[in-house]
């Protein structure tokens, strides 16, 4: 996993609530191995017509939003299916951060484990940020995981919280498996206690 410390990037507004992971990553692409094609799978059925042509009316296709690395989304982003491929698709599209008022639980966890920073902020703040990046295409936002602060275009700062353990892993680019394996004696002891009844 790539480490995440700080990011200043163009943000794209996606003014939709309850975006489910089926929309982010349609099921029919999930049989494919993870490779660069995942960039075209992300939001595929909204970005492309049935014939494969790019739909210019979909906001994430429009320049400069098509080069955004931050997505300012609606509430309950990433609900539904546990498919981690939804995170792979967003990363392949170039996103490194999603800002929303709330996230699907499993999506939130999947994002953290893959270096896609989910930033939870109050709904009114998210709505203002989305309006700001929609009003001035190309607007950048800054997120700093070290301080857990998002800086808006007007200079205002907004504190967000990433659970401590996940934050440590993300800052250092480490995955949890390596860290948990160091707890092998504790896991083995738990199993022995259970077996002894």
């Amino acid at each position: 996993m790539d480490a995440f410390t700080q990011l200043t990037a163009i943000a794209a507004p996606l003014d939709l609530a309850n975006v489910d992971t089926d929309q982010i990553m349609p099921a029919r692409f999930m049989r494919r191995p993870r490779d660069e094609r995942y960039a075209t799978y992300g939001f595929h059925d909204q970005r492309f017509t049935a014939e494969g042509a790019k739909r210019p009316d979909f906001i994430l296709n429009q320049p400069p939003y098509d080069t955004a690395a931050i997505l300012v989304a609606g509430r309950n982003f990433g609900v539904g299916s546990s498919r981690e491929a939804a995170v792979y698709a967003l990363l392949a599209m170039g996103y490194r951060c999603v800002v929303a008022a709330s996230f699907g639980d499993i999506f939130f966890s999947n994002a953290l484990k893959n270096g896609l920073l989910p930033v939870r902020l109050p709904e009114s703040t998210v709505n203002e940020l989305r309006a700001a990046v929609a009003a001035a295409p190309g607007t950048t936002l800054s997120v700093d995981l070290r301080t857990q602060i998002l800086t808006a275009p007007d200079g205002s700062t907004h504190e967000f919280v990433v659970p401590g353990f996940a934050r440590d892993c993300l800052l250092r680019g480490l995955d949890e498996i390596g860290l948990t394996l160091t707890l092998e004696p504790e896991i083995a002891a738990f199993e022995q206690r259970r077996a002894a009844g």
Partner: peptide, 21 residues
């Protein structure tokens, strides 16, 4: 339900990190 990274974690360690819901 869990994601693929967590599946790998459980396969390797038979454990999972969770925050209390």
């Amino acid at each position: 339900g869990i994601g693929a990274s967590e599946v790998a974690h459980v396969l390797a360690t038979q454990t999972i990190w969770q925050s209390p819901p």
